[in-house]
Amino acid sequence: MTWLPYLSYISVLVLVVGIFAKVIKYLRMPIHLRWELYPIPHEKKDGSYFEEVDWWKKPRKKHYLNQIIFMAQEILFIRALYHHNRKMWYASFPFHFGLYLVIGWLALLVGGALLKIFWVASGLAETLLAVAVVVGVTGMILGIIGCVGLLIIRATSSDLHGYTAPVDYFNILFIFAVLGSGIIAWVSADPRFSIVQEYIRRLITFSAATTTSKTIAWHIALFSLFLIYLPFTHMTHFFMKYFMWDKVRFEDEPNFRGSDMEGKIAKALTYTQNWSAPHIQTGKKWSETASKGVE
């Protein structure tokens, strides 16, 4: 299976480039009008600075810790689903939390491999490996339970069935296959995940990474293919949440005269628009169209 490490390298490359490209795409988008939605956790409870007379004269207090706590609850425990869609949460929470643990498992394996590379005969590496077994297996089992739950809910709920496309089932089944193959590999070939870690160590050091176990090879192959697939799907919402929440929903930064923001707005106002309804003078700069009025 000499192709396996190449697949692994490609998967990491595609994942990194894919994520990078998406982030860059959004970072390069022009400033947009405010579209915040309350409650905003860095503001006071439920309210905003608009509750105060002469708010612009007062120092802004942003409670960053509240926002971090809010987002941690949202990401780790799928808070919104818990409050507004409990039935789905019973499947979605183990699914997502399982995936987080699998990411943690991978991090522990990589960490252990790095220790072995740079710190020979480390007892810490062995400890990390032992923790990785608990974290990884728990994550995979939770993820599998979540996959099964999501499949059942999507297939049987009258609310969801009509809006679940083949690709949605495919995505869940794909993750199910990745996690399931991981459990099979653990049970049948690699109870301490030492073989997988060795594979990772060899990948990092550009040694001849391979494995003689077909079950492990299948798991690595499926995992790699999933990493290649991931950036092209809406599943990247796990990091795009930064834009959706921080840059839109919680974005209540006011525009002050002479600020950097004002500069960005001034630039956006120079864009040429070509909307063609009769009340819009097509082909003019945005600012000219807005200041001219209806003719």
Binding site: H32, L33, W35, F243, K247, V248, A268, Q273, W286
Partner: peptide, 14 residues
């Protein structure tokens, strides 16, 4: 398109 709809381009795309 960002030129025509800079006002809500990012929120809409997301």
């Amino acid at each position: 398109s960002k030129e025509n709809n800079w006002t809500f381009f990012m929120p809409l795309m997301l």
